[in-house]
Design a binder for these strands. Structure first.
Lengths: 202, 202
DNA sequence: GTCTATATTGTGATAGAC
DNA sequence: GTCTATCACAATATAGAC
C-alpha cells in the first residue's frame, strides 16, 4: 500500500518492515503483513520461507541502517566538536525519518541478546580510533578527562531517548500535544549538542 | 518459584510480573506464568479473568513503581543540585534492582500510547513547581538559562538508556563482558550527576 | 480453590489449482 | 508467481469433577 513496488519481493519487504517495526516480532501477524502488501499469506511463505526469516531480513536492514552511523565519528580529521555536531544532526534526522526503529531494535535485542553477535561484524572495529581521537583532545586540554565511552553512551542516549519514550515524554511534559512535542524534537539536535559540549569542554 | 507466597493471588502476580516484564505482553504465554507460579493455567483465569486483566495489574504496578519518583525532585527545599544527586542515586538503584522494567514500560506504551492516560492520574501535577524551582536557580545565576524540560528529559534518558540498551552497550563498548558492563553501571550514577551538573551550571 | 479435560479461536505454514 | 482452501498446532479461555 502506498508506493508502487518494483517487484513483489520488495513489496513484501516494505510491508514487513512497516508492521514488524511498529508491532515487534511477537506482535506481528503474517496476515497483517499480507494485507499491508496487498497480497495473501501464501506469497509471504513463497518468497521468505517463514516468519522468522522475514523478520531477520527486516531486523538486519534496520540494524545496519542505525549502527554504522558511528563510523561518521571516526572518518574525519576535523576536531571532535565539529564531528559531533555533524553526527548529531545526521543521527537525529535519521531517527526523525524512522522514529520507531530505535525502540524496535532495543526491544528485539533485549528479547534475544545473544543474536547481536550475528549482526555486529566488523562495524565497530574502528571504535578504538575514536577513543584515541577523543583522548588526544583530552591531553590537549580541550575536553575534560573522562572515559570516552561515557561520552558516547550519553550521546546515543540523549539522541534516542525522546523518541523511544515518546508516549511518556509527550504526556508528562507536553500534555499530549503532538505539535508541541514535534517542535520540541526539532529543537532537540541543538539542545543535545550544547548539553554535551557544555558538559565535556574544559 | 523462589519465595514462599503468602497466598495464591500474590504468587500468581509475582510470576506474572517476572514473565511479562521480561517477555512483554505479546511474548508472554499464560502457560509460562503458570509454570513459574507452580500451578496450572486454569487458576490464572480463576483469579484474573483474562490475560489482559493480568497484564494490566502487572503494568500498573511497574508503572507506578517508576513514575512517582519524579516527586522526589519537588518534595524538598534544598538546592536543585542536591536534590538531583539524591534522585539519581535513588533512581539508578531502583533500575539496578529492576533492570527490565524501564524497557518493558517503554515498549508497552509505544504499543498502546493512548493507554497512558489511564495510568498517569495526578502524579505529575506538581511538575510546574519543579519548573519554578529550576527557573528560580536560573534567575539566581546558578543554572544556565534553558528549558527545564530539556534538563529533566536528559536526566531520565541518561539514567535509563544504559539499561534499556544493555545488549548493544555491552557488546559495542564492553566486548560482551558482563562484569565490565556491571562495573560501568556501578560508576554510572556519579558520571550522570557530573555530566548534568557540568552541563547546566553557569 | 485447585485440578484435568476440552472447547474455541488464532496463526504459521503447506497443498494444489490456475 | 499467485491464488484459495486447508492443515496442524499453539494459546486463551471455560466446564465440570473433586
Amino acid at each position: 500500500m502506498g508506493e508502487i513496488p518494483t517487484n513483489t519481493e520488495q513489496n513484501i519487504l516494505n510491508a514487513a518492515k512497516k508492521v514488524f517495526i511498529e508491532k515487534g516480532r511477537q506482535g506481528t501477524r503474517m496476515q497483517e503483513i499480507a494485507n499491508e502488501a496487498g497480497i495473501n499469506k501464501a506469497l509471504l511463505h513463497y518468497y521468505f520461507r517463514s516468519k522468522e526469516k522475514l523478520f531477520e531480513a527486516v531486523f538486519l536492514e534496520a540494524f545496519h541502517k542505525f549502527l554504522p552511523q558511528i563510523e561518521q565519528l571516526v572518518e574525519s580529521d576535523r576536531p571532535f566538536f565539529e564531528v559531533l555536531k555533524f553526527f548529531i544532526d545526521n543521527y537525529i534526522n535519521l531517527i526523525f525519518e524512522n522514529p520507531h526503529i530505535p525502540g524496535f531494535i532495543l526491544h528485539e535485542l533485549s528479547q534475544n541478546p545473544d543474536s547481536i553477535a550475528r549482526f555486529m561484524s566488523q562495524r565497530v572495529s574502528n571504535l578504538p580510533k575514536l577513543y584515541d581521537k577523543i583522548e588526544k583532545e583530552m591531553t590537549d586540554g580541550i575536553i575534560k578527562p573522562m572515559d570516552p565511552r561515557q561520552i558516547l553512551i550519553n550521546l546515543i542516549g540523549l539522541c534516542v531517548f525522546p523518541f523511544v519514550a515518546k508516549p511518556i515524554v509527550k504526556s508528562v511534559f507536553f500534555q499530549n500535544d503532538e505539535e508541541v512535542y514535534q517542535s520540541f524534537l526539532l529543537d532537540r539536535k541543538y539542545q543535545v549538542y550544547d548539553f554535551i559540549v557544555n558538559s565535556i569542554k574544559t
